[in-house]
Simulated scan of single mutants.
Amino acid sequence: MTIDASAFPSPRRRASARKRRRLALLALVGLALAAATALILNAFTDTLVFFRTPSEIAQRADAPGTRMRLGGLVKQGSVAHEGTTVRFTVTDNRADQAVVYVGMLPDLFREGQGVVTEGAVGPDGVFKADSVLAKHDENYMPKDVADRLKAQGEWRGGDAPAGAPK
């Protein structure tokens, strides 16, 4: 009885098949990793924005209840207090967005001041905020720092900034 040598693959052939399988597995893992990275980056595109303006909210027709941040200026004459509920309008001077908030407002909140609210637009088109962040004026300087600058004769401001002595 003779043994047919062609029935058994050579060691070189076996090594080559292992390398191909390993290469295919690495390619598959690389493809899965690239797809996962693309999905994650795509999901972050909307959430990387610090806030949306009223104009952007008007242009984008997001589904009601989509969480976002709304930023702009509190429109003059729009603030109305009803107990703990506050209604106001945020504007970017191109579009306005009505906002309703229940709770205590920050001390810096006032008409004409920058504000960022977090919440969602309801089915009625009103932004229901669950937090309100008032932005301070860029010229703000603590009173004691302004006093020291004036005492040293280094005060260069024309008008006293917010918080500075008059």
Rank of each mutant, 00 (worst) to 15 (best):
T66E: 04
L28K: 12
E82Q: 14
D107A: 09
K150A: 01
A7Q: 04
G112K: 14
L105G: 05
T117P: 10
F8S: 12
R110L: 13
R67G: 09
A160N: 07
D96Y: 00
R69V: 12
D62L: 02
K75F: 11
H136C: 15
M68P: 04
F44R: 14
D92Q: 03
A129G: 03
R60A: 06
V74F: 06
K19R: 14
A17T: 05
K128M: 08
V116Q: 11
N42A: 10
V100G: 09
Q152A: 03
E111T: 09
P165R: 00
M104F: 12
V49I: 05
H81R: 12
D124M: 11
L70K: 03
A32W: 05
P161M: 00
S55G: 05
G163F: 10
A162K: 07
I3A: 07
Y101L: 04
A61L: 08
K150V: 01
S55W: 12
G77W: 01
D147N: 11
T47H: 05
G77A: 13
A35P: 03
L28P: 00
G157E: 14
E56Y: 08
Q152I: 09
I3T: 08
Y101D: 02
G72I: 01
R18I: 04
D144V: 01
A58Y: 09
S78M: 05
A164S: 00
P106L: 04
F44W: 11
S131E: 02
D46I: 03
G114S: 13
V29P: 00
V79K: 15
G77S: 03
